[in-house]
Amino acid sequence: MGSHVHTPISERHSEKPVFSAEKMVEVQRVINEYPEGKSKSALIRILHIAEESFGGWLSIETMDYVAEILKIEPIEVYEVATFYTMFNVQPVGNYVFEVCRTGPCMLVGSDQLIDYIGNKLDIKVGETTKDGMFTLKTAECLGACGYGPMLQCGKKYHEHLNPEKVDKLIDAYRSGNTNIEI
């Protein structure tokens, strides 16, 4: 509740991140979608690509690298990365479970779902399991109100969840099966 705010300074990557040739093509394609001189517009999408490419989070080095690509000041990237809640500026686990906690999901049991996952993984909201596999987060309304309780992991929405489905989900992710349809 009451809060002393420590500026959440991002940790650092030891090496300078560099997009693979394939990713660089995607990054260029995104930049080219905007008129000349408006490449800053590509920032958010490139941050998504960067997060995906460099361990699921944005280090200072990653953000500076993106600034360099877009020819903008690093602070412009920091400002944006810390504004939008999808961006992690701290390291996260391989799989980030973001459980929607807003009203409509709460009405159908999101609080219990969060507790269940936390107990099962033995972590609190915001924490990562010791093996670095899972991070548990809460999210505000993810637009799945009629299909709750639910969680998002990467691009995927897992809806109509209950304890059995969560068990299956965790087992699947743990064994590297990210295509599970639940």
């Binding site: 941050l47 504004f83 999808m86």
Partner: peptide, 10 residues
């Protein structure tokens, strides 16, 4: 026509 994503902000 292009699609641009946000980053999580109501």
């Amino acid at each position: 026509l292009r699609v641009a994503p946000g980053g999580g902000a109501y």
